[in-house]
Amino acid sequence: MKRLVIPGEILAAKPLRLDDTIVENGKTCSTAIGLFDEERGTMIPLEGQWYPRFGEMVVGIVEEAKLNVYIVNLNAPYKGLIISKYAEGDIRSGDVIEASVKELDKTGTAVLTRPRVLHGGKILRIKPSKVPRVMGKGNTMVRQIQAGTKTSITLGMNGLIWLKGGDIDLAIAAINRVQNEAHVPGLTERIAKMLGVKPESINGAPEEGRHHVHQGEAQHVEEEGIQEPME
């Protein structure tokens, strides 16, 4: 049985090892608005902040082109930084880029690699906590939105989404709907219906929250990657 919880709420009378919780006097308390599943002992945060992790794809706007580095606005308390000599081609201030997180340095700057300039299009800013849902397990959700709108979509884990071509307005409407209904079961089917496409699935596996989001290489390094600095 899943239930909605708020910050400060006691989830269990015993310590659980879960993100978005603290353990106090042997009890587990939520620190976020979320969906807590008592039986499975999982907590899916419905609101949250983004922490850069190794390998994650981000979308940002180049704020400043200095001699050796580019400073990137990531819509987060952390700036992105690209070292010029690792960037191919011409990057200018104001460009929208896609890049992957290399590391989070001590000053709270996310060092980015493999930048790619995204030309034209539109940027949508959503809550970073909702990106995993927009992505869907195995990219199912984003694939069906692309199929239904013919819009090319680049998802940044930092909550910035770049869209180009096709029916952008419909794509945005679908993404906003995912954002608002992220916690309600049957989302993939509803969005498929909205877009008039066949629901995407990966081996019929049920959709779930953020523990499935770290795609590809990110998944392998999650263990030793940058951890959230909990207490």
Partner: peptide, 11 residues
């Protein structure tokens, strides 16, 4: 929070 930022070219 559904802020849409539009790029110059696009608009």
């Amino acid at each position: 929070m559904h802020i849409v930022t539009i790029t110059d070219e696009y608009i």
